[in-house]
Amino acid sequence: MTYVVTENCIRCKYTDCVEVCPADCFHEGQNFLVINPETCIDCSLCAPECPADAIFADNQIPPDQAHFIELNAELAEVWPVITQTGQPLAEAEDWVDRGGKLQFLER
């Protein structure tokens, strides 16, 4: 099992989850984070740290977010690892909990 970052992270990119990850499995894009399924150790520490509630175990992911399992794996191959927290995006509070954000994902 692995953990997966879902749509609610897009245009928010809170990094509270990164600091608690003992496996350094987070990768950073312009406006989204992903978890590398190859390095995730299923410790579950990241999920409760996410202010946007965007992280789920792959076997508990909402059905409408299942495509993020493959997206996390794909983008983890090309985005750099992130190991320290940073500031969320300036518009994070305006975008958290909005649906339909996949179209705004910057690859």
Rank of each mutant, 00 (worst) to 15 (best):
V96H: 04
W95M: 04
G86A: 10
A23G: 02
Y14R: 07
F56Y: 14
T85M: 09
I35L: 08
L75I: 04
L102W: 01
E93H: 07
R98F: 03
W95G: 02
C12T: 15
F56Q: 04
G100I: 15
A92T: 05
D58G: 03
I41T: 01
K101M: 01
S44W: 11
N8H: 13
Q65K: 14
Y14E: 05
V18C: 05
C40R: 10
R98M: 12
T85I: 10
V81W: 05
F104M: 15
F56D: 06
K13F: 05
P88R: 12
C25V: 04
R107C: 01
A73W: 08
C12P: 00
G86R: 15
R98P: 01
V78M: 06
N59D: 05
E91N: 08
N31Y: 13
L102E: 14
C17S: 11
D97A: 14
C21Q: 05
I61Y: 06
D97Q: 15
N36P: 05
N31P: 00
N36Q: 12
N8S: 05
D97P: 09
E19I: 02
C50G: 07
D58Y: 10
P88K: 14
L89H: 03
C40Q: 05
E7P: 03
C21I: 01
A47G: 03
E91R: 03
M1S: 15
I61V: 02
I35S: 03
K101V: 02
K101H: 02
F32N: 15
